[in-house]
């Protein structure tokens, strides 16, 4: 990670109580596709008000896990709970997700925000103030009437983040939100994430960047072969990984688990 990112002061992160309540939990989670078990008896707990980072090698099942927790995919087995209760429609509406490649409707920047808020049932009067705030926060006021798809990758990702935040979620899923962005664009997206954290939004973020994990994250869940093999405070997991898979990944080594045919 470049110096600019490392040295830039981040907005203050709210200090969560040591034992924040569990917002989302999954137990015995499995997901099969194409005859293969891609998520295998996975357990995870996401604590409320904190930023949880999910790390792991490509193909480990991180994005699948996010989609399962957000309800975009239905697990083959196991259960996902929201505040200890089965996930329902209201719980899903309290969540938002930003994808690695932002999905922009074929409309203006303004219309993209307006659509998201109208779907959430906001009245026109309430929408406008939120849209203005979102545009200002993403520094896209001057581009409000431009087609969203002509924005740069960084601008599109900023719009995707503020569009998700404009829906006022309690939980925000971020699937590698700064992948393939240049340092200054990544910085701008990180600022938005930090702002969401300051508002008390629980964040679950996938990243491959240990420095970013240290900057933004509090809890870290390391995923390997469809299982969470290690969880703990970011600092502790990154400095003293206990699992062989996390150690190997952080050292940049290939790791083949017993019984596994291909390295991940």
């Amino acid at each position: 990670m470049c110096e600019a990112l490392r040295d830039t002061p981040m907005p203050p992160t709210p200090v969560a109580a040591p034992a924040s309540p569990v917002l989302v939990s999954a137990a015995g989670l499995c997901f099969d596709a194409g005859g293969k078990r891609l998520i295998d008896d996975l357990d995870i707990r996401i604590r409320e008000g904190r930023c949880s980072v999910i790390m792991g090698a490509n193909g480990a099942g991180k994005s699948l896990l996010l989609r399962l927790m957000h309800g975009l995919l239905t697990p083959s087995a196991g259960e996902i709970r929201w505040r200890g209760r089965p996930m329902d429609r209201a719980a899903r509406r309290a969540q938002a997700m930003v994808f690695q490649r932002p999905v922009m409707l074929r409309r203006s920047v303004l219309a993209n925000l307006r659509f998201a808020l109208s779907v959430r049932g906001l009245r026109a009067g309430d929408r406008d103030s939120r849209i203005f705030e979102a545009l200002r926060r993403a520094r896209l006021e001057d581009m409000a009437h431009r087609p969203a798809r002509v924005l740069s990758g960084g601008e599109q990702q900023r719009l995707a983040v503020v569009r998700a935040l404009a829906c006022d979620p309690e939980l925000l899923f971020l699937d590698e939100p700064t992948a393939s962005l240049d340092p200054s664009s990544a910085q701008a997206v990180e600022d938005l994430i930090a702002h969401a954290r300051a508002r008390g939004v629980t964040v679950v973020m996938i990243t491959h960047d240990p420095a970013q994990a240290r900057r933004l994250g509090e809890d870290l869940h390391f995923v390997h072969s469809g299982q969470v093999v290690e969880s703990g405070p970011v600092q502790a997991v990154l400095d003293h990984p206990r699992s062989e898979a996390a150690q190997a990944w952080l050292d940049g080594r290939l790791f083949v688990a017993p019984g596994q045919s291909t390295p991940t």
Binding site: H70, G71, R92, R93, M97, F99, V103, L105, V119, C167
Partner: peptide, 25 residues
């Protein structure tokens, strides 16, 4: 195919989905 996950994430209903797709296309 391009919008499906975003629609599902936002919780777009069936009628809104059809109208949005027709408008954007």
């Amino acid at each position: 195919g391009e919008y499906a996950e975003q629609f599902a994430s936002l919780g777009v209903g069936r009628i809104d989905r059809v109208l949005a797709l027709l408008w954007d296309a």
